[in-house]
Design a protein around this nucleic acid. Structure first.
Length: 768
DNA sequence: GAATAGCACATTTTT
DNA sequence: TGTGCTATTC
């Protein structure tokens, strides 16, 4: 892991690099073809070499989109059409940005460093830090994460006496975010929209939320774009500077851009009009987050004279997989139209396996059996993935994989820097760097408990307001007065002294040591050591990991800035050999030899909620999700559905997803449990769609409740419970070996070696 | 100020 | 079925 921030080079090279730095095409290749073009197919080549004017590259799954983007940059720079720092390339994720920069470095070496390449947010931060004053911020502004955002909004709700039951903060934040996604600052929200949102009350909240952020000199993620956009709209001189600078603009995943990003791009590209957007409307799966497929559908209208290149040669999947995916996605109305094909491949590959089973348990068992048998045939587990619609669905497969003893990893879930203990530690660090960080102060002032409760904080708030100072600085004053009772005053003084001490230590002390000692001296680490709850040891481990993570950085400020934009934990990204479990959303951009797509049932996939909220448009997005899932596979696809599964503890019947009917029968091998859909199922052939009708009476939900099969865990002889105490090592049929962390009658909390912390009944474990 | 019991709620998520 | 949040109680 490196802490080097590509954007930290604030001074651009003044003079163009000498001929040695960027090889000139003419000089090096004697007028012949530059080597980077050699292996490109004709469409890719066109996308790379059409560098003047607007260009839309419709790049299907697996057609070499990253390659086109990086080669295009190399081409522009290599031909000296522009200097590296005159090129802007924006992505959505840090992962994509990193990959692009690495590949570019491989092609052109050092100059790759000075390309403006990063996520929309990172680029905006870079610009905003320079021109913060122009939008009412100071350069050192703080970037809030979701946690801080919600905290702040809740405070405002409380202050305004709004019932958070009637107006859930999450929903309010959602409305505000959508406005920001559309590039709407509070004063630009259309009256009609404002009226629709709580009769204008949400707009009022939006206003006060923004005001509070300004007071705190802080931004949320949406603001990074919104402020940057406002900056461009209101300061023509600044806009022009960037318009002049960015001769060539490249955009990755264009189908995921929201309105704000679109406006931002359009402004920047207005001068040179050299904008190249790469995207795939069939993989637009983030509309619920503000992404506008419309941006890609309208490109030619917005950029008159735009050229469109279609990349349809897929180098990833077998022809059968491509055929199935194409057939499915053809059911969508709103698309630009594109067909993936596999160039020059003779072997069409095996059919997709679609399997129906009775219950979700069986589905997991079957799926893991398939994994095992593939592994036995020599397929590596790291080439296999289970892709689900929603995060909770990974559980049944995890459990089954544990029982079987196969290694796996789950992508997603709470990330390292979002864990409570890490955020607490970060708040301490933030306070060292910026004493005006009220949110950080409030977070840790009474963590661990110092007897500084609500009453004390309230007093502090009043004093702070009176003094016109941030909380922490006000606290420094207040401890010198009699405003507080002796006890809280002493506690607060103690807290402030610790912070002050570390503030002076910060410049001289080695970073990991500083963080560790701060956690010790503040009593924070001790708090978790004393905590008897079973998750406490894990939290301490995470803190240890944090001490290790800061090592790579030069200073606290750099560390905090970096993680505010890069929330992922790079240290953990290391490849390991297990099966990958994740959501379909998380799988976009990845590929595997074998892909398992379980849970293809109506109401789960397509998801009920999505359909309720978004109607037909949402159904199309769900279908695109299915398309994304299938096209992740290189060799094989296994789709499955269960006739019944437990949802929130209740047995619920399900019918197969409509997407199964939309697969071309000739690409599918149907398997089903005996009796599940009668004999008609397997041999239904062309009348594929009708197969379900026979078994289920059309698409009506069956009212018959199918109970669990009752064979597995009915009655188990009660083990001698006396041997089971905290600290005892035990064995569990499902979860394997572990140590008892807590005992409450017959309920145990056990930390399992592989399965993590689980609550189990004493009857299900035995002494190891 | 802290522990606890009851209660609603339960897609997708990067920055 | 599990969790995380609020309201209540000590």
């Amino acid at each position: 892991m490196t802490a080097s921030d590509p954007f930290s080079l604030d001074d651009e090279p003044q003079a163009p690099p000498g001929p040695s730095a960027v090889p000139s095409a003419q000089a090096t290749f004697g007028g012949g073809e530059p080597p980077w073009l050699v292996d490109l197919n004709p469409e890719q080549r066109e996308a790379v070499t059409t560098i003047d004017g607007p260009l839309l590259v419709l790049s299907g799954a697996g057609t070499g989109k990253t390659r086109v983007l990086t080669t295009r940059l190399a081409h522009i720079i290599g031909l000296r059409m522009a200097q590296p720092w005159q090129c802007l390339a924006v992505t959505f994720t840090n992962r994509a940005a990193r990959e692009m920069r690495e590949r570019l470095s491989g092609m052109i070496g050092g100059p790759a460093e000075s390309v403006w390449l990063g996520t929309f947010h990172a680029i905006c931060v870079r610009i905003l830090r320079r021109h913060a004053e122009a939008v009412g911020l100071k350069s050192g502004f703080l970037i809030l994460d979701t946690d801080d955002q919600m905290r702040l909004l809740k405070q405002l709700l409380e202050g305004a006496g709004i019932d958070s039951k009637k107006w859930p903060p999450q929903a309010i934040m959602g409305v505000i975010q959508r406005w920001k996604d559309r590039g709407l600052a509070p004063d630009k929200v259309p009256a009609e929209d404002a009226r629709a949102a709580g009769g204008g009350s949400i707009l009022a909240l939006y206003k006060s939320y923004q005001a509070r952020l300004a007071e705190l000199n802080a931004c949320d993620f949406g603001d990074l774009l919104l402020h940057c956009l406002t900056l461009f709209q209101t300061h023509h001189d600044i806009l022009e500077e960037y318009q002049d600078r960015f001769r060539y603009i490249l955009v990755d995943e264009y189908q995921d851009t929201n309105v704000a990003q679109y406006l931002w791009l359009r402004l920047l590209a207005r001068k040179h009009r050299n904008i190249c957007c790469v995207g795939d409307d069939d993989q637009s799966i983030y509309s619920w987050r503000g992404a506008e497929v419309g941006n890609i559908l309208r490109f030619e209208k917005d950029f008159p004279g735009a050229k469109v290149v279609r990349l349809e040669r897929n180098y990833r999947s077998t022809p059968t997989i491509l055929k199935a995916a194409s057939h499915l996605i053809r059911n969508n109305e709103e698309r630009l139209g594109k067909e993936l094909r596999a160039p020059g491949v003779e072997d069409v590959g095996p059919k997709l396996c679609v399997r129906g089973v009775w219950s979700a348990d069986e589905e997991a068992r079957w799926l893991v059996d398939e994994i095992e048998s593939l592994q036995a045939k020599g397929a590596p587990l790291s080439g296999m993935a289970v892709l689900v619609r929603a995060g909770f669905q990974t559980r049944e497969f995890e459990e089954r994989l544990i029982t079987t003893g196969l290694p796996y990893r789950v992508i997603g879930g709470p990330r390292f820097y979002e864990r409570m203990e890490i955020r607490d530690a970060l708040a301490y660090l933030r306070l060292l760097v910026s004493p005006d960080d009220d949110l950080a102060f409030e977070r840790v002032v009474n963590k661990p408990k110092r007897g500084l409760g609500e009453a004390t904080i309230q007093t502090l708030h009043l004093s702070a307001r009176a003094l016109g100072k941030p909380l922490y600085l006000a606290a420094l004053d207040v401890i010198e007065t009699d405003e507080l009772k002796p006890k809280p005053r002493a506690a607060l003084r103690d807290f402030c002294e610790t912070i002050e001490r570390f503030k002076s230590l910060a410049p001289v002390m080695d970073l990991p040591e500083l963080v560790r000692t701060l956690m010790e001296d503040s009593g924070y680490a001790e708090m978790w050591r004393r905590d008897k709850s079973p998750e406490a040891p894990g939290r301490l481990e995470n803190l240890d990991e944090l001490y290790g993570a800061v090592e790579a950085y030069d200073g606290l400020t750099q560390f905090l800035e970096h993680i505010s934009l890069v929330m992922e934990n790079e240290a953990r990204a290391a490849e390991d050999p297990g099966v990958t479990l994740m959501t379909l959303h998380a799988a976009k951009g990845l590929e595997f030899d074998v892909v398992f797509l379980p849970g293809w049932e109506e109401e789960i996939f397509p998801h009920k909620r999505a359909l309720e909220e978004g109607g037909m448009a949402a159904l199309e997005e769900e279908r695109r999700l299915a398309y994304v899932g299938i096209t992740r596979a290189r060799q094989r696809v296994f789709i499955s559905f269960a006739a019944s599964r437990r949802v929130f503890g209740q047995w619920v019947n399900a019918i197969p997803s409509r997407f199964i009917d939309e697969l071309p029968p000739e690409c599918v091998e149907a398997q089903s449990e005996s009796g599940l859909y009668g004999a008609g199922f397997a041999e239904s052939g062309g009348a594929w769609g009708g197969a379900w009708e026979d078994g289920w009476g059309g698409r009506q939900r069956s009212s018959k409740i199918i109970p669990g099969d009752g064979t597995s865990f009915n009655v188990k002889p009660r083990e001698a419970e006396e041997g089971l105490a905290v600290g005892v090592r035990v064995f569990h049929q499902k979860f394997g070996y572990g140590v008892i962390q807590r005992k409450d009658e017959d309920k145990l909390a056990v930390q399992f070696d592989k399965a993590g912390l689980k609550k189990v009944l004493a009857g299900f474990v035995e002494r190891a």
